[in-house]
Design a protein around this nucleic acid. Structure first.
Length: 569
RNA sequence: CGGGACGUAGCGCAGCUUGGUAGCGCGCAUCGUUCGGGACGAUGAGGUCGCCGGUUCAAAUCCGGCCGUCCCGACCA
């Protein structure tokens, strides 16, 4: 491509409304343009990168036996009602109405539709099957953000595996795990596999691939020593036991005027340190008022509460609901003597004695509370949020927490969808069994953004060779110098013939403008062709990432550049 | 959906407090001089001031409503 003919609208200034690095650079370098919140047009450079990312993913999924299909983005609502997700994913579904008044939804993911196709499988002899597509998804995100990082319409590679048993699923899952690691490596992003919550997807196990970046939206607890990594929605840690002194035989109520918080009670004369307090929260889980108990110095990890109880919708109770349930306002709440509502307690409270908690009477607390003796706990769960520096659950070293972009997510789904939609096969004994499924997703444009988050410097993007829109840019220093232009044109033709993606910057601009643009759009290699070098029969090769420059004899340039590019592909 | 900010030329911004002429930089077009790291001069094109309504002789500016976008929180590739 000749730059003079190309549509590469680079901007001199940073766009005002872009915060994330990838958003700012992709807009400024002319890869994308925003149309609306969470809606981006992909410009020519962006489309080239996107195509390369899809190519890599396709190769790797084909490599583990995937068969590519293409399903519709438009789905009949009834199928989503059969699996119950019309309700559980209701908020993010885009709905459309056709001229006959029928209702359809724009697919946010395709488990339902792939499973519908899988109903044509009839025998265990036909599995395993591994099907995938690269297709547009629509999600009415409550808050689109960060340019391509979180949008409402995007492309996803989603694959689905079908087996007769969980052993088969495990094999497919492991193959995807390995394929995903190869994909991310080839895309030039570091993606840490982490244990994750399956959320609305359901199923048993799931692993997210997290690209560390301040632009990310998830926190990951990670142990450098042993490699343990888990989304904080699931992460655990080992805490030292707290020795309890024996307390009174019954809890004692005492006045605590003005004490509203854990902190207040620490400072209150006759109060208690946070780790000796029981924090009482009130939640509404799918409509049911529930008490949630944690140690005073621990925070609730809401997703754990959802996962642990199988709750779809949770919200903190309103002050009036709390008062009606417990007879006091937040600040004086406790679970002692409460009978009726579900009471869930964090594991860290197990066997604790002589604790302090609210008395369900405003401005009063109880001391000497023995959890087993005094509180009717209906369920024990891991509910607390892990904090930096706590001990790794597998090796005991201090955990760190980093922010990450969820670049891919693989799920063991089990039989939820096959049961709901009747995707059964006969096993070797002639018994009808539901297919055991897995689903495996990776967002194309999000990975483009993640690659930029991970590969940039003050001058712009620094693409890995594997996904760069062009591998080489030839910067012609003086386009109206005939001899220079002849050499540049020949180099351009020869590189094209050698199978290199090359961009010829033949614009009549000053060299500084061209150098800056080349760096901004992030082409891995630049060949500078100008009269000064040609006087000595050389052109200059510079590498974007290192800034390293080498003089190349004109006659050997093509071979040397080709070798260089191939070595980095 | 809750909280905060913003909306003026393709991009980045000023003007609004105290109503009256819409301005700056970049980019764009033409000409000239330049030309190995975002040149200089001259001339020029380009704007429903987000939308609707109100106040007023007069609204980018004051008032009301709406829409849109970004950022922070509850959701996910």
């Amino acid at each position: 491509m000749r730059w003079s003919q190309a549509f590469i609208p680079t901007l001199r200034d940073d766009p005002a409304d872009a915060e994330a690095v990838s958003h700012r650079l992709l807009v400024r370098a002319g890869y994308i343009r925003q149309l609306m919140a969470g809606g981006y047009s992909i410009l020519p450079l962006g489309q080239r990168v996107r195509a390369k990312i899809m190519g890599i993913i396709r190769e790797e999924i084909d490599g583990i036996g995937g068969q590519e299909l293409l399903l519709t983005a438009l789905h009949p609502r009834e199928i989503w009602e059969k699996t119950g997700r019309a309700e559980t994913m209701g908020d993010i579904l885009f709905s459309v109405t056709d001229s006959r008044g029928g209702s359809a939804i724009l697919g946010p993911t395709h488990e339902e539709i792939f499973t519908t196709i899988a109903t044509e499988l009839t025998s265990y002899k036909q599995v395993p099957q591994l099907w995938y597509q690269i297709q547009t998804k629509f999600r009415n995100e409550p808050r689109a953000k960060g340019g391509l990082l979180r949008v409402r319409e995007f492309t996803m590679k989603d694959s689905y595996s079908f087996d007769v048993d969980t052993d088969g699923l495990d094999v497919q899952f492991d193959r995807h795990f390995a394929a995903y690691q190869r994909i991310f490596e080839r895309l030039g992003v570091i993606a840490v596999p982490v244990e994750a919550s399956s959320g609305a997807m359901g199923g048993t196990d799931s692993i997210e691939f997290m690209v560390p970046s301040p632009a990310g939206e998830d926190d990951v607890a990670h142990c450098k020593a042993c490699g343990y990594a888990a989304n904080v929605e699931r992460a655990t840690s080992t805490l030292p036991a707290i020795p309890d002194e024996p307390g009174p035989s019954v809890p004692e109520r005492f006045p605590t005027p003005g004490v509203k918080t854990i902190l207040d009670l620490i400072e209150f004369d006759g109060g208690a340190p946070a780790e000796r307090q029981i924090k009482t929260l009130v939640y509404v889980l799918d409509g049911e008022l529930t008490l949630v108990l944690l140690r005073g110095d621990h925070d609730l990890q809401e997703q754990k509460l959802l996962d642990g109880t199988g709750t779809v919708e949770a919200r903190p109770a309103r002050p009036d609901e709390i008062r009606e349930l417990l007879g006091a306002d937040a600040g004086s709440l406790g679970a002692v003597g409460v009978i009726g509502p579900r009471i869930l307690a964090d594991d860290q409270l197990a066997d604790r004695t002589n604790m302090v908690t609210g008395a369900n009477l405003d401005d009063h607390h109880l001391r000497g509370v023995d959890i087993q003796r005094d509180i009717e706990v209906t369920g024990w769960l891991d509910l607390r949020a892990v904090k930096v520096g706590e001990a790794c659950p597998s090796c005991g070293e201090a955990l760190e927490i980093f922010r990450g972009i969820e670049a891919g997510h693989i799920f063991k789904l089990g039989t939820k969808f096959s049961v709901a939609l009747g995707a059964m096969v006969l096993d070797a004994d002639g018994a009808a069994v539901p297919l055991v499924m897995g689903s495996y997703g990776i967002g194309i444009e999000r990975n483009m953004a993640a690659a930029v988050e991970m590969n940039h410097d003050d001058d712009g993007i620094v693409w890995p060779v594997s996904i760069a829109p062009y591998e080489v840019v030839i910067t012609v220093v003086k386009v109206d110098d005939e001899a220079t232009m002849i050499v540049a044109d020949r180099l351009y033709d020869d590189l094209n013939d050698a199978g290199i993606d090359v961009l010829l910057d033949d614009r009549d601009e000053r060299p500084g403008v061209k150098f800056n643009d080349a760096e901004l759009i992030g082409i891995p290699y630049r060949i500078t062709v100008g009269p000064r070098g040609l006087a000595d029969d050389i052109v200059e090769l510079s590498e974007r990432r290192s800034g390293e420059r080498t003089d190349l004899p004109v006659g050997e340039a093509v071979e040397m550049i080709k070798a260089q590019v191939e070595s980095r592909k």
